[in-house]
């Protein structure tokens, strides 16, 4: 039916008449002016209130009685400058930990999620095991897992295991984050409508092919924002490996606070982590918009 619209011969339609190029009527121009003015007004109000809030906050903090002492122990420019190289070197280690762990976590999390969604009595033990794993490691505080793995496993004196605490820190991070990511992915898998599975099976795709080509692509898209949220979280939790004595950004800052006699290096480390997180958060927003939105419908 739509093709009837094409090839219209405008002139021969008595009521349609010729159509000159459109230009907005005075009425519409007035409406547009009003919308623009309203937009400018709300932008000005937002900007002003932000500035006022910021100024009040700064004045309130700097006028507290303890401010000079805080300044002396947290905001020493020379200490901050001295801390930059060591903290940056430590941050590079944090970054590598994050990237490696994220890749491993995604693969393992996907496996656990798939195991948890398997149906049938044969898979019951696997399902229970996967459930027990996610329950356990989502419940355990990450710092405990780090301490138990970092000091416990080397204590077993198993042959062939590396002695590097970074390795054990990564194991602990992977154990904890895999449990979270598996649950996020499972939610995604279960949110794909059964009719999608039915359509794939009807085409002759097997169980695995259905999962691989139809269910998982939709599931991962749908939970992408949550996954990227976990990635940002993993990035800053990589700082916790410092409890095992690894010299990452946090540990480097800790050593420097002793040397400098003030806490400024901690602030430097914190600033570095935030600087790293902000671009990543923006990238994840953009990725989620680009990939998360389309094809996630299918609602009835």
């Amino acid at each position: 039916m739509a093709d009837q619209q094409r090839g219209r011969a405008g002139a021969d339609l008595s009521t349609a008449g010729p159509r000159p190029a459109w230009s907005p009527s005075p009425l519409q121009l007035d409406r547009d002016r009003h919308r623009r003015r309203a937009g400018v007004r709300s932008a000005v109000v937002a900007a002003l209130s932000t500035v006022v809030f910021g100024v009040v906050l700064v004045l309130a903090i700097t006028s507290t009685p303890g401010w000079p002492r805080i300044q002396a122990s947290f905001l020493v420019p020379s200490s901050a400058w001295a801390a930059v190289p060591d903290v940056a070197r430590g941050l590079w280690l944090n970054l590598r930990i994050m990237v490696v762990c994220a890749a491993v976590v995604f693969v393992l999390g996907l496996s656990v999620a798939v195991l948890r969604t398997l149906r049938g009595a044969v898979f019951a033990p696997v399902r229970w095991l996967a459930t027990a794993y996610t329950d356990l490691f989502r419940g355990l505080p990450l710092i405990l897992v780090l301490l138990l793995v970092g000091y416990g496993v080397p204590g077993l004196r198993l042959q062939g295991l590396p002695g590097d605490p970074v390795f054990y820190g990564c194991i602990a991070l992977v154990l904890t984050y895999t449990a979270y990511v598996a649950e996020v992915l499972r939610a995604g898998i279960e949110s794909v409508h059964p009719s999608q599975r039915a359509a794939a099976r009807a085409l002759g795709l097997g169980h695995a092919a259905t999962l691989r080509f139809v269910v998982l692509p939709q599931a991962v898209r749908r939970v992408l924002p949550a996954l990227l949220n976990d990635l940002v979280s993993l990035q800053k939790d990589s700082g916790l490996v410092s409890v095992l004595g690894v010299v990452d950004a946090i540990r480097a800052a800790q050593i420097l606070t002793a040397k400098e006699g003030n806490f400024t290096p901690y602030l430097v480390a914190g600033a570095f982590f935030v600087l790293l997180t902000i671009p990543m958060a923006r990238v994840t927003d953009a990725v989620a918009r680009r990939w998360g939105a389309p094809g996630t419908g299918g609602a009835v």
Partner: peptide
């Protein structure tokens, strides 16, 4: 984008 939509005597296209 343009024009008048009058409902119960008022132009509701007005922002």
């Amino acid at each position: 984008d343009d024009g008048v939509v009058e409902f119960e005597g008022r132009d509701i296209a007005d922002p």
